[in-house]
Amino acid sequence: MIPPAAPPAHTPASTQSRVLAAGARPMVEAQRVSVRYGKHVAVEDVTVSIGRQQITALVGPSGCGKTSFLGTLNRLSDLIPGCEVAGRVSVDGEDIRARGFDLVGLRRRVGMIFQKPNPFPLSVRRNLEFPLREHGVRDRARVAEVVEQSLRNVGLWAEVKDRLDAPALALSGGQQQRLCIARALALEPDVLLMDEPCSALDPLSSGVVEDLIGQLRAQYTVLIVTHNLAQARRIADNVALFWAQGGPGRLVEHAPTEAFFESPRDPLTIAYVGGLRG
């Protein structure tokens, strides 16, 4: 067998130590993860460790595989016809790509927020109740309690408590996105994946959602894809830069936010942060 190519200079070995304290157990770990759609390779050879209860921003230009990578962490990539994932992904030490892995349990533990808010065409209350019940929370009092608490956690309770039975699609875009976050939080996940959760919202709603994401730190492990470097700087503990140079996207640099912006090591990061590229 031909041994795998020697890792390039900016691989995890050099970056990991900057992000994770020695001996810390990562929440999410990817080892040499690649994603391809048919012949097109979207991301190649991503190795990264994500610390617990931290916010990690995935940044980089469009089409560099950030979203594709995110989809491997809850195996939503399984739903895309022709999408193939290689490498090892583990959540809390468990290999989630193992044969027969409990997908329902995985997706309960790893919630996802999409770019476009996607509340179900049901009432506000049903949007929260339905997934809860499907995951076995059936006690009425308990369900009502979780519904209220989840809405309070996203600052939506005061706004919707008098119209819990109104259609969720009648809410504003920002409210819908917060409802989606509440819906994910109601299942008490460990990890939240967010795919540009603010980019489809108006500036005011975007600010509200961004503040909310900032508050999730310390309770959840958050991975957030964003095109907004200023946003990454405001909310993230760590930043990971993805870059596709003519070929598939790769992880270029993964560093604590301050180091990422103040003392980037990779020339691409230096250029990107300096606004020269991307």
């Binding site: 739903l79 997706r107 996607n118 179900f120 997934p131 499907e134």
Partner: peptide, 21 residues
């Protein structure tokens, strides 16, 4: 499609997704 993907991301089974969403 975003309803179906949203439901899958919440760990709902296919039948629950069809029935509930």
């Amino acid at each position: 499609d975003r309803y179906v993907r949203g439901a899958a991301a919440l760990g709902l089974t296919r039948w629950a997704t069809l029935r509930g969403v």
